[in-house]
Amino acid sequence: MLEKIRLDNILFLDIETVPEHPNFNALDDETKQLYDLKTQYQRRDGETPEEFYERAGIWAEFGKIVCLSVGYFTFKGDIRHFRVTSFFGDEPKILKDFNNLITNHFNQPQHILCGHNAKEFDFPYMARRMIINGIPLPNKLNLFGKKPWEVPHLDTMELWKFGDYKSFTSLKLLTKILGIPSPKGDIDGSQVGHVYYVEKDIDRIVTYCEKDVVAVAQVLLRFRREDLLIEDEIIHV
């Protein structure tokens, strides 16, 4: 079934998120209390909400998107390319630009969104942040009333589970065991907030995010038993 999906009908994506504010003290008192309640079971014994605030980016209620990278295949005869581009900076603009992209180019029934652990994280996070920012939900993220088989989403982590609901496999581990060049560079997800707020190096975050998009595409190619992308086939636009 997976082999029957045309690769050029799939939009691969990844997002990078950070806490919505540079530090805990920037929150108003009510939001501080709500964050305390939200994270009470995630924090270690004795760890304060303020100390835990660097993790706030994983919740759409307390975080924001600073980079959204996408990639898609193009074919011209026997020539295959994978084009990668990113939206970054101001979150409302990121979401509006992404909305425009999928509304204008990936909005037909055959089009599918694909990411790693995206059904649990990327897709709902984007939808929630769109609602928070007053941006209309695109059809591909609006799941209300859809049956499971009507949801236009692929998740490489879910594909790897093969029905094993308790399994979590990171993209880094999956690329390692499948013989795919590691997508990770000089930072990991836990450091994105520091790079964004302290180092103010958005280019570094964009590079990190785009590597993940390429890695997800490579994983899907391995699932389909197709040749992996080589460097000359990857175009950054």
Rank of each mutant, 00 (worst) to 15 (best):
W59Y: 12
V237P: 07
T39M: 07
A127N: 04
A215F: 00
E47T: 07
K211R: 10
I132K: 08
M126I: 14
R224K: 12
I205C: 03
N133F: 05
E210T: 09
V237K: 10
I131E: 12
D29L: 14
C209I: 00
D36E: 15
N9W: 05
V151K: 11
L228N: 14
L137F: 11
L159H: 09
G189P: 06
C114S: 01
D29N: 13
L173C: 14
E91F: 10
F73G: 08
K184A: 03
H21Y: 12
V216E: 00
E226P: 12
R55S: 01
H81Y: 12
K147Y: 10
K184H: 01
T156Y: 07
G57T: 08
S86A: 06
H194D: 13
H153T: 00
Y53E: 06
N23T: 15
D14E: 08
G63Y: 05
L13S: 10
Q110G: 03
P124K: 00
G57D: 06
L178S: 13
T31P: 02
Q42I: 02
K147E: 12
F144M: 12
I112L: 03
A215Q: 05
D90L: 02
E50T: 01
I15Y: 01
Y41H: 03
G71A: 03
K64E: 09
G163A: 12
T48V: 01
K176H: 08
E91C: 10
D155K: 04
T103W: 09
V84Q: 04
G179V: 02
T17N: 09
Q33Y: 07
K64Y: 04
P124Q: 00
S167H: 06
M126W: 01
E199W: 06
R225W: 08
S69C: 07
Q191G: 08
L159W: 09
L137Y: 12
E210V: 05
T48F: 00
I202R: 03
N25K: 14
E20F: 09
L27P: 10
N117Q: 12
N104V: 03
A217S: 13
F168Y: 04
M157Q: 15
L174P: 03
K200V: 00
I202F: 01
W160F: 14
P136F: 04
R222N: 03
R43P: 13
L7V: 01
Q218M: 02
E150I: 14
Q110Y: 09
Q40Y: 03
F162G: 15
E20Q: 13
P19F: 10
H111I: 09
E54Q: 11
K140T: 11
A215G: 02
F88M: 08
E16C: 06
Q108I: 00
R44A: 05
E233L: 03
P109Q: 11
L68N: 08
T85D: 15
D78P: 05
D29C: 13
R6I: 08
A60Q: 09
K119N: 14
V213P: 02
E210W: 01
E20I: 14
S170F: 07
M130W: 00
K211L: 06
D122F: 08
G46P: 15
V70L: 10
W59A: 05
W149Q: 15
P19T: 06
D227H: 13
M130Q: 04
L68D: 05
E226S: 14
W160V: 15
K200H: 11
Q110S: 07
G179I: 02
